[in-house]
Nucleic acid binder design. Structure first.
Lengths: 302, 302
DNA sequence: GCAAAAGTGTTAAAGGTACACCCATGT
DNA sequence: ACATGGGTGTACCTTTAACACTTTTGC
């Protein structure tokens, strides 16, 4: 290991003005919500947000996102690995460690934060809600879990000379008992000859999230949706033991599609062998008791 | 748009020592290589590397990667979007624009560069080799295309109490007429209960690439391999018109697997409809002329 | 008995993998 | 004539999507 004082010996590291480097955390969990009495509850995804300080009635042109909800995050220290900064932020907010975490994307538009030039790397963490304390973090900040959902509102496809332009408009909705945040995220795909480009924007609206955090959360939900199909990522959001219907409900909320339970069972147990049965049974429900399963740690992706 | 002088007005942006921010470019192309006379040539992937300055015989402990080959890249300017910095670097090196480009990953280990703290975002660019000039960039630097290939050398799987550890050792080989670079990249997957973690390391060797660039290139090749299965990414590496055998050869070198041509044809043309036939034909070959196809710009992923 | 979910049998369509074969070209 | 790839017919198996039905529980 190199001594810190040797580092930088021959270089003047402060000649040029540098962007700041931060990490943003998309901390997700899944919880049950009752939709109908005497029925299995649905799952819903929740994301942890922090209330930024400031007066919501005063508009500050140098910081228009004061008093808005934002993703937790912070600066990367000079002698701290990028991953370590993300782990530190996660622990500060949730007091949990050893959960699934993955780097998502690095956001680097010049004016994404009007106070200073910030380049921010986003990380997604998936937490089993049964392992969480009621309080999210113990600092003075106003941290809350929001039910999160992205809905496709509109899709427009325009033919061009050598391809097409496809514009999808989504509504990102964030709800928590008292607060309701709605943001619009637009995904543009430009196909030109053999090269396609994907763009992600958000529409700035007064009641929305701070910064570009609507797009960042949307991006995380998309990544989760894709990865749930071919990895074991979903099990990070489940308790140790679960019924196959509970697991199905989680897959449904992540993918946004209804799943046929007959085939889901066979796929998980017989075909992909992602779960193994236990001798434990669910009880106390007004229907036939269900067997509890656990994740098969020997499962390997193909 | 905000005036640059307004930006930073109320903040002292230089209070703390900051990491530097750079972009690294993995610029890939695919070229034909003759393996046998009178046969269709194979495809091989090439990556653009830059020779770092310095005396290869002198070891500098503050910069041990002098005189080694590295990925092109550079600092992100304070008033420059991250994506724009990548586009600028690409144009500086290859004089091409409007090619496929995608952000890959942000590398942020503290001591990945011993001269200063650098956080580097890597971008992959895919260039059709027929559009490239012979010379790669016109600056004084020593820029060369290297045939690139990753080979799995060894896989070790160890059972643990709650899961397993799997270690895969790859050799990354970079070859160009005069130079041959070999690096070892190790991919570790730790499955512990319901959470898995993936680690990417390289073995530092005197004849290897500079910095952590072996892992960065390996990561790009893996991403390309995954994406080629469900996107149209491969066509960015192909000329406008091509035979189905040429396309198959490209898929083979990217995935590292042999493909049955009978099924590849049907899949591309009938099933996925990624290509459309033209009325043009290949000629001058000592076998039956092949029809030329082009990418179907109306193709949409499912 | 009823509502709700657990769990199994079966089938038809779509996709993946493979063998076998004939055709057209330059040398 | 021959080597080489172009291109098609077909068969088998797996995966996917779906309908139908029996069983078990709490109320």
């Amino acid at each position: 290991m190199i001594e810190q004082k040797e580092f930088l010996k021959d270089y003047d590291d402060s000649k040029y003005k540098k962007p700041s480097t931060t990490v943003d955390m998309i901390i997700l969990t899944a919880v049950d919500v009752e939709i109908k009495a005497r029925s299995v509850p649905d799952k819903v995804l929740r994301v942890l947000l922090i209330k930024r300080k400031g007066d919501p009635l005063v508009v500050d042109v140098t910081d228009p996102y004061k008093a808005k909800w934002a993703l937790p995050g912070g600066f990367v220290n000079y002698f701290e690995d990028l991953d370590k900064a993300a782990i530190r932020e996660l622990e500060e907010e949730t007091n949990v460690s050893d959960v699934y975490m993955e780097q998502l994307y690095t956001w680097g538009k010049v004016y994404r934060d009007l106070r200073r030039r910030v380049i921010s790397t986003s990380y997604m963490a998936l937490v089993d809600s049964s392992k969480l304390n009621v309080k999210a973090g113990d600092d003075a900040e106003d941290a809350c879990w929001f039910d999160v959902k992205a809905t496709l509102l509109e899709e427009i496809k325009t033919q061009t000379q050598t391809g097409y332009i496809r514009k999808r408009t989504y509504e990102l909705s964030l709800v928590n008992g008292e607060h309701e945040i709605k943001d619009t995220v637009i995904v543009t795909k430009v196909m030109e000859g053999r090269n396609s480009k994907i763009g992600l924007e958000y529409l700035d609206n007064p009641s929305g999230l701070a910064f570009d955090h609507a797009t960042v959360i949307f991006y995380a939900l998309e990544r989760l949706k894709n990865k749930v199909e071919y990895t074991d990522i979903a099990f990070s959001l489940m308790p140790e033991l679960f019924t196959l219907t509970e697991l199905k409900k989680l897959y449904e909320v992540i993918t946004g599609k209804a799943i046929y339970s007959r085939n889901f069972r066979d796929k998980m147990e017989k075909q992909k062998k992602m779960v193994i049965e236990t001798d434990e049974w669910e009880s106390g429900k007004p229907y036939k008791p269900a067997r509890l399963f656990r994740f098969n740690p020997d499962w390997v992706e193909d």
